[in-house]
């Protein structure tokens, strides 16, 4: 009965130890391990969803007014406060936050921070769609908050002003450049200008339509005349 154990004991003498030779050989974390946070300020639209969603309040943001109509925003990710749940990554609509597989987070607590800054224009006022709109829906598709609603058939454009984060992405994606942020006091004037422009646009459209119809009629008449001529022959 001793023999199998003895064999195992002897074979173990010649096998490698099961201990990981860690500091000498670096051990990679398993795929999808949630480690050190990386933040890309270029992608960030400052919607603040990660700050809202973070349970241990590890994410904070600060603003610094630069004075020339722009401001510098900084996102701080406190790694000694983080639970590494990955919720910020899931909620980030532009994939600016990633939890990397780097687990070597050792040292002074003051160094265990991830930070990133961006400089954006300060946007005040509410989003306004001008008369040039062609209802293409580019703003609707690119809105990180998905609060713009465009219907091509009924030619409606709607936005939920309360939920707008004023990131300005819709403005940059608009092919007609008709989106603008309008102040409260200029709102009535903008509406008026839009209505007037729309009247002009409609009149032009009606004119164009009439011209097109007339051209089509003329073409049809010419064709009929040709057909009649052919029949006469």
């Amino acid at each position: 009965m001793m023999f199998p154990f003895l064999r195992k004991a002897i074979s173990n003498l010649f096998s490698k130890p099961s201990t990981e030779n860690f500091p000498a050989v670096n051990v990679e974390a398993k795929p999808n391990y949630r480690g050190r946070i990386e933040y890309d300020p270029e992608k960030c639209v400052n919607c603040g969803e990660c700050v809202k969603v973070c349970a241990p309040e590890a994410i904070t943001r600060t603003y610094e007014d630069l004075g020339d109509g722009t401001r510098k925003g900084t996102y701080h990710f406190n790694l000694t406060s983080c639970t590494f749940c990955g919720t910020c990554q899931d909620f980030c609509s532009t994939n600016a936050i990633t939890l990397t597989e780097d687990y070597h987070m050792v040292g002074d607590a003051a160094d265990l921070f991830t930070e990133g800054s961006w400089i954006h224009k300060i946007i005040t006022g509410k989003l306004f769609c001008g008369a040039d709109c062609i209802f293409c829906g580019m703003c609707m598709r690119n809105c990180p908050e998905q609060i713009i609603n465009v219907d091509r058939k009924t030619k409606t454009w709607e936005v939920d002003h309360d939920r707008c984060i004023k990131c300005g992405i819709c403005q940059s994606k608009c092919p007609k450049k008709c989106l603008d942020f309008v102040e409260e006091e200029d709102w009535a004037a903008a509406e008026k200008a839009k209505a007037e422009a729309l009247v002009v646009k409609e009149a032009e459209e009606a004119k164009a339509k009439a011209a097109k119809l007339a051209a089509a009629k003329a073409a049809k008449a010419a064709k009929e005349a040709e057909a009649a001529k052919a029949a006469e022959k």
């Binding site: 000694t80 070597h104 987070m105 050792v106 040292g107 002074d108 265990l112």
Partner: peptide
């Protein structure tokens, strides 16, 4: 020394 992580990996603890 502060070891960050929730929980830290054993390798990080050794470090």
């Amino acid at each position: 020394v502060a070891i960050a992580g929730c929980t830290p990996k054993p390798e990080a603890v050794i470090e």
